[in-house]
Simulated scan of single mutants.
Amino acid sequence: MAGPDSLREQKRTFTRSRLVAAAREVIERKGYASATVDDIAAAAGASRATFYLHFANKDSAVAEIVAEVGRYAVERYRALDELLTSARPDRRDQLRAWLADWLEYWRGTADLQHALSTAVSINREIERQMLDISSVTLIEQLEGFLGAQPSSERARIKDRAIILETMTSNVFAQASRDLMPATDDAVVDYLTETWEALFLAR
């Protein structure tokens, strides 16, 4: 049987998770700049005081959302590493499918991604957190692929991968909000060619 401390910790974890989910819902709906602590607390069915028991301010709740998004992206890039290090004859088709699924994820989270990009432009800590995920953490998940490259080339390939991932994120951000004049298929086709040149032509 769980003791009082264990139950208290479970309740605390549940409340914190509810607040993070509410923060995500609110910033998706209202945007980062317009969302307030009161909005988040109300959406979670909690008081303002309860919010401040868990987070110092709105930005610390948003940082938790960024961490959640980052964890999902890490899993995506681990799957990419498995693909890149496989001997499958259809790796190019699988790479295209991976990119298409990634764009679909961006489309499904377009409002959240836009809100987070606004947060990045306003808050330097969130900007650092996002940059660390996109330019370091994700590419580090390609350890199998990078480890198979000649040691003399590894740093250069890693730098190119970081640039490519950053470019792809920017393209997906625009495409997911219908700001890209090209169709999704055209976007994915072009990106497949670009990613193939770096990751498969070796």
Rank of each mutant, 00 (worst) to 15 (best):
F172R: 10
V20E: 03
L146D: 03
D189P: 11
F172C: 11
D90V: 10
G45Y: 01
A197K: 11
K30C: 04
A73F: 10
A35K: 03
S121V: 00
A33S: 06
T118L: 13
P150S: 09
T15G: 01
L95Y: 00
S176V: 12
D185E: 14
Q113A: 14
F55W: 11
R107Q: 15
V37C: 06
S135R: 14
T183D: 05
S152E: 14
S135C: 09
Q129C: 05
D159H: 06
T192A: 03
L112V: 10
F55Q: 11
A97P: 00
S86Y: 07
V136D: 06
F199M: 12
A73K: 14
D39Y: 05
S169W: 14
R202V: 10
M180S: 12
W106M: 14
L142Q: 08
R91L: 11
L19E: 04
T85V: 15
I65K: 12
D81S: 03
D38Y: 03
E28T: 14
L53Y: 11
I162Y: 07
S117Y: 04
A41C: 05
G31Q: 10
V171E: 08
S121Y: 06
Y52E: 02
A73P: 10
E9C: 03
S135P: 00
F199R: 08
A44G: 01
D184T: 04
F51T: 06
V66T: 13
A21M: 08
A67Q: 13
S34W: 08
G45K: 01
A63C: 05
A46H: 06
V187P: 02
E68F: 13
W106H: 15
Q10L: 12
A42H: 06
Y77W: 15
Y52N: 00
V26G: 01
Q141S: 06
A35T: 07
A79K: 15
T183P: 01
A43I: 05
L146S: 07
A175P: 02
R88F: 08
D178R: 15
E25M: 04
A73V: 05
Q141N: 05
A161G: 15
L19C: 04
E143F: 02
F14T: 06
L116H: 04
G45W: 05
E143T: 11
S134Y: 00
E25T: 09
T118R: 15
E140K: 10
S34V: 11
S86W: 12
S169F: 14
L103P: 08
F14L: 12
T183K: 08
Y52A: 00
R124Q: 05
A22R: 02
Y105A: 13
S121T: 05
Q129T: 04
S134L: 13
R128D: 01
Y72A: 14
Y190E: 14
R71I: 02
L191F: 07
T194D: 07
S134P: 00
E143D: 10
R177F: 03
E140Y: 03
M167N: 10
V187K: 07
E196A: 15
S117I: 09
L80H: 00
M180C: 12
S34G: 04
E143C: 03
W98A: 02
E153Q: 15
A44Q: 06
H114K: 15
Y32P: 08
K11S: 07
L146E: 01
R18T: 00
G144R: 12
R177G: 00
I27F: 05
W98T: 01
A41Q: 01
R128V: 04
